[in-house]
């Protein structure tokens, strides 16, 4: 028996909106520690890892570990029927081939339930090695989204270079080139407006902007984004989910042939 009650139901709505175009089908894993997901896009270029810790739910019952295969497009269609202020409860019986999403309006005057068919998904969790990243940049998530969107009008790839001077986002296309440098800036009124660069070694890597732009759909989940870079490793683009966990996107770099 599984019953997870999330008072801030909009968080789950936002999570689905941020991953449904990247991943078609995925197994949601439920254990006593939390509700999680790990899935690759169909081209095996990017990987998303989601964790919503059990402590973040108002009520969390998971009698035994369960893996529920869901089509994220269909799940998103159902969650879009929840109001932004609704409480969302996820329910499933052991061995059932369906999951139920229940939506309660804040005033309790409207209660809906949607039952969705589960699917068998053959997927193995990949081992993500612990890594010390050479450069870690934390910046306002809206600023990162703006940069990715702006650059994708000019080129298909972004070179992210971190030096002591700052983090540089560069692209090149048929119409010309673009370089955007964000300097470390910690003297701001609010901590979420800061750009913080922790660099042990300078690093420069190239990534497909199409994927970066897809990741920025998670911007609504967090005011800040953390970009962790090391040569020879996928970049990690992480959005913290308030007091509950995180959504992390891993993207393999492009290399010169």
């Amino acid at each position: 028996m599984l019953e997870l009650r999330l008072v801030q139901g909009s968080l789950l709505k936002k999570v689905l909106e941020s991953i449904k175009d990247l991943v078609n089908d995925a197994n949601f894993d439920c254990s006593s520690s939390g509700f999680s997901l790990q899935a690759m896009d169909s081209s095996h270029v990017a990987l998303v890892a989601l964790l919503l810790r059990s402590e973040g739910f108002e009520h969390y019952r998971c009698d035994r570990n369960m893996s529920m295969g869901m089509n994220l497009g269909n799940m998103s269609k159902m969650l879009r029927c929840a109001g932004n202020d609704d409480i969302i409860t996820i329910k499933a019986d052991d061995g059932s081939d369906t999951v139920t999403f229940m939506f309660e309006s804040p005033t309790q005057d409207k209660i809906s339930d949607f039952e969705m068919k589960l699917m068998d998904i053959d997927s193995e969790h990949l081992g993500i090695p612990e890594a010390e990243y050479q450069s870690i940049v934390t910046m306002p998530s809206a600023e990162f989204a703006r940069i990715c969107k702006d650059l994708s009008g000019i080129g298909d790839t972004v070179v992210i270079s971190v030096t002591k001077e700052g983090v540089k986002f560069s692209t090149r296309g048929d119409i010309g080139t673009a370089n955007i440098v964000c300097r470390q800036n910690t003297t701001v009124d609010k901590p979420e407006e800061a750009t913080v660069i922790n660099m042990s070694e300078p690093v420069s890597l190239t990534f497909a902007l199409r994927y970066m732009n897809s990741f920025t759909k998670a911007t609504t989940l967090s005011n800040t984004v953390t970009i962790s870079l090391s040569s020879e490793l996928p970049v990690v683009v992480e959005y913290k989910i308030a007091e509950m966990g995180y959504i992390r996107f891993y993207l393999a770099p492009k290399i010169e042939e």
């Binding site: 990949l126 081992g127 190239t206």
Partner: peptide, 14 residues
């Protein structure tokens, strides 16, 4: 020319 690497080149199946 640039080549897109796969995530499977970095993260292994168990």
């Amino acid at each position: 020319m640039q080549r897109q690497q796969s995530i499977l080149s970095f993260f292994k199946k168990p």
